[in-house]
């Protein structure tokens, strides 16, 4: 059988990215939308690590930075979600309209 090429990893990462975008655009629950964003970040990480096999270790360093950013984003996003839920008693994105007038 053929060896695993970078293309294999790019296909998996593209699938994860597309599924994450679909989740962000179609789901109503804010928690699921945040999880879809994590899926997108994971796809980027897989690309970075796959290319780091060709171009050197810098890609893995950047994937660690992306993981750190994902942690910060999840903490802030879920904090906003808790603060919002306290006001409106809902987690649906289409009912988040406090800034609309």
């Amino acid at each position: 059988m053929a060896p695993i090429t970078t293309l294999h990893y790019l296909v998996v990462a593209a699938a994860l990215f597309v599924l994450g975008v679909v989740g962000v655009l179609t789901r109503r629950n804010v928690v699921v939308v945040l999880m879809s964003i994590e899926l997108i970040l994971n796809a980027v990480n897989l690309n970075l690590v796959a290319f780091s096999r060709i171009w050197g270790l810098q890609g893995q360093i950047f994937s660690i930075f992306v993981i750190t950013d994902a942690a910060a984003e999840a903490a802030v996003g879920l904090g906003i979600l808790i603060a919002f839920f306290r006001n409106k008693e809902t987690v649906n994105v289409d009912e988040v309209d406090l800034l609309k007038w």
Binding site: T68, D69, A71, E73, A75, V76, L78, G79, I80, A83
Partner: peptide, 19 residues
């Protein structure tokens, strides 16, 4: 810089989630 980012994120989460 990332450590500063994480610190700001922690403070933001505490401020947002505190009653």
């Amino acid at each position: 810089v990332t450590s500063v980012l994480v610190l700001i994120a922690i403070m933001g989460a505490v401020v947002l989630a505190s009653h």
